[in-house]
């Protein structure tokens, strides 16, 4: 028997059903960029360290470079394109733009996805330590992180997002 080379992926990306025939080895990141049109997903290291390609799978942050597209079948995926449809996402965007919490912008979507998960999901008040731990999974080479931490604290204090209420 020949090994299966192609498979159908049936998933929902930012609330929209997506079905595509892909190589079994296609990474989730490439699938999202090439098949689902989510060019906010950026590849910085392709080995799961830098965090630029972070997306949410069923609400949890995941490095999309380490997953295969085939593993997305039956799951819901959220990228920056989806986050920006929400009020919380728009608030994050405003805070980042006003605080200059980005320079080249290549790492930004990953930071935002993890921060969105923290701000929307926290059941306890969000501490400075929570913010550091969340942002600590991402590499930014431009900002020195200070402005990102400031934006995150401002968002925590604004309480526009669901968590921490």
């Amino acid at each position: 028997m020949q090994p299966q080379r192609r498979t159908i992926v049936t998933t929902a990306v930012n609330g929209t059903p997506v079905e595509a025939l892909v190589d079994v080895r296609t990474t989730l990141a490439d699938f999202l960029r090439e098949e689902a049109g989510c060019t906010s997903v950026h590849l910085g290291c392709e080995h799961g360290v830098c965090g630029a390609c972070t997306v949410l799978i069923d609400g949890l942050p995941v490095r999309s470079c380490l997953r295969l597209a085939a593993q997305a079948t039956g799951h819901e995926i959220t990228t920056l394109e989806g986050v920006m449809q929400t009020e919380c996402g728009k608030t994050i965007g405003r805070a980042f733009v006003e605080q200059f919490a980005m320079q080249c912008g290549f790492c930004t979507a990953g930071f935002v996805l993890s921060l969105y998960h923290l701000l929307e999901g926290a059941s306890e008040p969000i501490t400075d330590r929570d913010i550091h731990e969340t942002l600590g999974g991402h590499i930014c080479r431009c900002t020195g992180y200070v402005s990102i931490v400031e934006a995150a604290k401002r968002l925590r204090d604004q309480r526009t997002c669901r968590g921490n209420s």
Partner: peptide, 19 residues
């Protein structure tokens, strides 16, 4: 003024070479 470049990113209109 706030960041023009950042606004483009959050408007989902960024254009990097890989795109």
């Amino acid at each position: 003024p706030p960041s023009t470049e950042g606004q483009r990113l959050f408007d989902l209109q960024a254009q990097y070479i890989a795109d």
